[in-house]
Design a protein around this nucleic acid. Structure first.
Length: 820
RNA sequence: GGGGCAGUGGCGGAAUGGCAGACGCAACGGACUUAAAAUCCGUCGGUGGUAACACCGUGUGGGUUCGACUCCCACCUGCCCUACCA
């Protein structure tokens, strides 16, 4: 088909850099405020500068870019920025391994990745690039800390916190993962340490974070966040120890209060020492030691047999004044609720196991209607089902559906408890004992306490000359001079906070820095904010559901309450891509040797082919294993497109009216579906639709359509449809065809609805729902006509076997179903 | 233990409740070529049949419906999240 002597061959390696240079020089993708145009802020998660852009980045960003381009052609003023999340543990760990300064390592990686990102041919507006490790960026990260500190959203607290012994730093609860409770970054199981750390009051926003009503976010992310926050409704109840101390517990089952036969405290509970009697001191101390040694990993495995020790102390059950023993056991966690529970063995499985093991009394107080009368001594497991209250003093007989409310009312009347809500969400621990992060802008003064560095003194610069090897202490503490300063309040001798901030703090607001990355009057230029915010579409991986995506929502809401941002949510729409696995169907990793390098692919096929394949080869939200021969299909597609439009045809202009009509129909039908698929993120069917149209156009060309008006229309529409997918070849062919520069500033083509209409349709004829015949009939066929034609079909007759149809169902334009 | 997602040819996948398997990859047969690559034409879910065609077929079992890959219920398998959460 191709004759290289007549037309140039398709050489992406020549075309792509040429257009990238031209677009760059022309500022084609620079997005500025334009009050006459509707704005569209398209955001994709910024990469970590870990060295190389991997195929996962391309997979995430290419469709995001294509859709941003599509929106632009639709007439929106589209901003699509890019930057680097440059602080944090991985950069530092890698730097340690290689003995290079983290700064040097990070910034040389950024240079490399910026080059790789440019090779994608994406419409990033590089003027808006933001790098979180730049002082002009982290100045404002620190400023936000001050805002939080000054408004009681940041506080310091000594607490048992998660500590990664490999990374030598504390972690937020969200950054501890999996059954073995390992570090999100390095995979090492964490340990608990008692440390004084900085926290943000994200729990103030727990309820608001559960409200997704004004967002178009995937259900899955909403569910993950909802489960993570884990709101539970119940009651807080005040028990009193015999020593007169109040012992508050949280329960979701106030209706079982009369069945509480003992209490259990976490071994670390502050009241334990006071409660313990002389006889029990030794046993309690030993158990506490043991619990401390064991750590959370073993403690929290539910299948382990329950253990515990009696303190010797007693409490009074406030609903019936019963005297019940107080135990300690490691199945009660200090980090949830109040670190103390009332134990109702009859209706809670854990309490049941514990009671059986230590021979504690079991009293049945709930009798579900559909279960035989429960006898405590015969129970083999707890009965957690709701039901009518029994053995419950004045509330005995209360039906199951009223039990909760009545019990709470009873508590409130007596003044011993109240309705309460508890969350699993913990406050966000942001202190890190590492070097490569934004210093927490606090000065500790003996007289004045923790004093924020005045805003005008920001940024607190990270010193370069630091021994940044991790020791478990902040490296900044080891710097000879850095920490020594004077108190901004009293002028006395004082010391800087030496911990740095969690890098998730930097990434919680980067979408705001893109608005005006060099603005010096504030974190962002309000004028830019007013025009561009909120983010219209945010794309990225779902692994951030309970980390970045919850932090950034909190950040926005907290800032809104401080008058800095506006609106309920920062990102209106979210879509998550899946993962590209290795060809062996395993996660890509260097150790497995199954990593696919985008640089090599670009060198071999060109960026346009890689882009097209990434959009085509899987359902975007699911991902799939890589297939290195599959990409040949996309390469073939682009080659075919190239020759389709450039290679002259025999019999040009001789096409019949029918060929022209069919061509226009297919073009406009494809335009309709491609437009729809861009809107709905169905990227794979965009490419398959274009491939299908190519096949049809190849036939039409052979039938003489080349050179006709309809052909020219088809070409113009085809190139514009493919421009978001493969921007370089589209531009090249567009210019070769003699249209105006640039294809990427052209309007999205309009569907000619009339042209999409079929004249004939295939009428499906079914007998009892089974396909028996296909009839070609005119589109305007009436019901009676269609039914009659179907009944006349010979195939149908053979299946009717002379029986009379009971019913004939007609679906206009589709089918006739004959029921016998 | 709790929650979520997924299950369609050898593979990736397509299908507003209405022709299952579009499009592509791989494979096979053929054309072109000294040859290979590239390109082009054709076949390509299973069983039976020379064929026309018939029957079966979207993880399993039920249900709703004239009609189910699609909706509902239960289950199986895989992946992900979460977990003594009181």
């Amino acid at each position: 088909m191709s004759d290289p002597t007549r037309i140039p061959m398709y050489h992406p390696e020549e075309i792509e850099p040429r257009w990238q240079k031209r677009w760059d020089a022309d500022g084609l993708y620079e997005a500025d405020i334009d009050p006459d145009k509707e704005k569209f802020y398209a955001l994709t998660m910024l990469p970590y500068p870990s060295g190389d852009l991997h195929i996962g980045h391309w997979y995430a960003m290419t469709p995001s870019d294509a859709r941003a381009r599509f929106k632009r052609m639709q007439g929106y003023n589209v901003m699509f920025p890019m930057g680097f999340d440059a602080f944090g543990l991985p950069a530092e760990n890698a730097a340690i391994q290689r003995s290079i300064h983290p700064k040097e390592w990070t910034y040389s990686n950024i240079d490399n990745m910026r080059r790789q990102l440019r090779s994608m041919g994406a419409m990033f507006d590089w003027r808006r690039e933001a790098i979180s490790a730049d002082p002009e960026y982290y100045k404002w990260t620190q400023w936000f800390f001050n805002q939080f500190f000054n408004n009681d959203l940041a506080y310091q607290k000594e607490a048992p916190v998660d500590f990664c012994p490999h990374c030598n730093t504390t972690l937020a609860r969200e950054q501890v993962q999996g059954e073995d409770r390992h570090c999100e970054r390095c995979g090492t199981p964490v340990i608990k340490k008692d440390l004084r750390q900085w926290f943000f009051r994200i729990t103030n926003y727990a309820d608001e974070l559960l409200d997704f009503s004004e967002m178009d976010w995937p259900d899955q992310v909403q569910t993950l966040q909802t489960n993570w926050i884990n709101r539970s409704e119940g009651a807080s109840v005040i028990f009193t120890t015999e020593g007169g101390d109040e012992l508050e517990v949280f329960t979701t089952r106030p209706d079982t209060l009369w069945g509480a036969t003992f209490m259990v405290l976490a071994p670390e509970h502050p009241l334990v020492q006071k409660l313990t009697t002389a006889e029990q001191v030794e046993a309690v101390a030993e158990y506490q030691d043991q619990a401390k040694r064991m750590g959370d990993i073993q403690r929290e495995s539910a299948d382990r047999e329950k253990t515990g020790v009696f303190t010797g102390g007693y409490a009074i059950n406030p609903v019936n004044d019963e005297r019940i023993p107080i135990w300690i056991a490691d199945y009660v966690l200090m980090s949830y609720g109040t670190g103390a529970i009332m134990a109702v063995p009859s209706h809670d499985q854990r309490d049941f196991e514990f009671a059986r093991k230590y021979d504690l009394p079991i009293i049945v107080v709930i009798q579900p209607a559909d279960i035989d009368p429960i006898v405590a001594d015969d129970m083999t497991e707890a009965i957690p089902a709701k039901g009518a209250m029994v053995n419950s003093g004045p509330l005995t007989g209360t039906p199951g559906d009223e039990a909760f409310d009545k019990a709470v009312a009873f508590l409130e009347e007596r003044g011993v408890g109240k309705r309460a809500v508890n969350y699993r969400l913990r406050d966000w621990l942001i202190s890190r004992q590492r070097y490569w992060g934004a210093p927490i802008p606090i000065i500790h003064c003996e007289k004045c306490g923790a004093v924020p560095v005045p805003d005008e003194d920001l940024p607190v610069l990270l010193p370069d000359d630091v021994a940044w090897r991790p020791t478990g202490e902040s490296p900044l503490k080891l710097h000879p001079t850095w920490r020594h300063t004077t108190c901004p309040k009293c002028g006395g001798k004082a010391e800087r906070e030496t911990d740095t901030m969690d890098t998730f703090m930097c990434s919680s607001w980067y979408h705001l820095r893109y608005l005006s990355p060099h603005y010096s009057e504030g974190p962002f230029d309000p004028e830019e904010y007013n025009y561009w915010m909120p983010v219209d579409i945010y794309t990225g991986g779902i692994e951030h559901a309970t980390m970045h995506l919850i932090y950034t929502r909190f950040f926005h809401k907290a800032l809104r309450d401080l008058g800095i941002t506006r609106g309920k949510e920062p990102m209106l729409q979210l879509r998550n891509q899946g993962m590209v696995l290795g060809e062996d169907n395993e996660k890509m990793s260097k150790s497995r040797g199954n990593v696919i390098s985008p640089d090599e692919l670009v060198a071999e096929y060109g960026a346009d082919t890689v882009r097209a394949y990434l959009m085509f080869f899987a359902r975007w939200e699911l991902g799939a294993p890589w297939n290195s021969s599959g990409i040949e299909g996309s390469a073939r597609w682009l080659r075919k497109v190239w020759y389709l439009f450039l290679e002259p045809a025999d019999h040009a202009g001789t096409a019949s009216k029918d060929v022209i009509k069919d061509l226009r129909r297919k073009v406009h039908q494809t335009l309709k579906s491609v437009t729809h698929d861009f809107e709905t993120f169905s990227f794979n069917t965009i490419v398959s639709g274009l491939m299908e149209l190519l096949n049809e156009m190849t036939t039409a060309k052979a039938e003489g359509a080349f050179g006709t008006d309809a052909w020219q229309e088809a070409e113009s529409i085809y190139l514009r449809m493919m421009a978001p997918v493969s921007p370089h070849i589209a531009e090249e062919l567009w210019m070769k065809a003699g249209y105006d520069y640039s294809i990427h500033t052209q309007p999205w083509p309009e569907v000619d609805e009339a042209a999409t209409k079929e004249e004939e349709l295939t009428l499906i004829v079914q007998v009892n729902g089974k396909l028996r015949d296909r009839l070609t009939v005119p589109v305007g066929i009436g019901e009676a006509e269609a039914k009659a034609a179907s009944l006349e079909s010979e195939n149908v007759a053979s299946f009717l076997e002379g029986k009379t149809p009971k019913k004939v169902i007609y679906v206009p334009g589709r089918l006739v179903n004959i029921v016998v």
